[in-house]
Design a protein around this nucleic acid. Sequence first.
DNA 1: ATAAAATGCTACAAAAAGGTAGTAATTATG
DNA 2: CATAATTACTACCTTTTTGTAGCATTTTAT
Lengths: 138, 138
Amino acid sequence: MILGKTTEYALSVLAYMATRSQDMYPAELLHRELKIPRHYLRRLLTDLSKKGFIASSRGRNGGFVFARELSMINFAQVIDAMEGEEAMNICLLGFTACIVDKPCAMHDLWSDARSKMAETLKNTSLADLREKYLNDKG
Amino acid sequence: MILGKTTEYALSVLAYMATRSQDMYPAELLHRELKIPRHYLRRLLTDLSKKGFIASSRGRNGGFVFARELSMINFAQVIDAMEGEEAMNICLLGFTACIVDKPCAMHDLWSDARSKMAETLKNTSLADLREKYLNDKG
DNA sequence: ATAAAATGCTACAAAAAGGTAGTAATTATG
DNA sequence: CATAATTACTACCTTTTTGTAGCATTTTAT
Ligand code: FES
Ligand code: FES
């Protein structure tokens, strides 16, 4: 498993919000559109608020909006926040993490491949996603 | 999480065996050396046998050996066998898998990064690992 | 033969991840 | 003010993953 389900849900929610133009996204809407289990989604949204990606407003007409500009949120940030920063830093051969001064025999190859992937995720923001989405559609 | 713990254990075991030169590796030895929980390791070893990476011999002086040449086992095979082939094929935005004819907005970027990583894993065999290990040591 | 050293197997326990339910608090609107 | 729409919180359930225990079976050494 590359990403946990919850992380996929998170990306899914943020991507959805980033590619539409409503000014408020209530949990119920996201539940309907994305088929993420209602209550589980609610917790996830609260979590994403606490992590500073989105902001909530309660009460009637409430819901969620982005807490920062789309260009300030990239995929690596979301994945790190959801999975923990160490998640991307594992040693392929199962040592508890990549150790810089005593790397395993796979280290160079692996950390190269991995950091290229990390770069891609870091270089892609929700703004990029939105742009691409709108272009593809039009 | 990039890989499950069990997969890391598997790679760890195979890498250990590939980089030594004993002609038999009993579970107890691997347990001592790699600190993998005894009984859990035993199941894993049986599993790796069934999957054709190693072969077991029972009874006194028994243990595990490779079932094929080191050059015929690469990292991608092991990961696929442990995690399922689909694991590497997930859609970043949470659709149930990458769908070829209706890809999401992240697809091109993501599948590129991902396939490069997969290439690296496929191009590295246990024989390569062994060679590198022995060179590093000497 | 018998004991020792192994793997094979099955059942269960604990922890983590994923999912469900319901209540309390907050806010806009008629 | 009352009501409806909405998030926040807490407690619990289910499934999956990881870990433990023990007995049965096989093989070799003595
Ligand atoms: S130390 Fe093993 S991959 Fe870095
Ligand atoms: S369809 Fe989303 S990454 Fe391939």
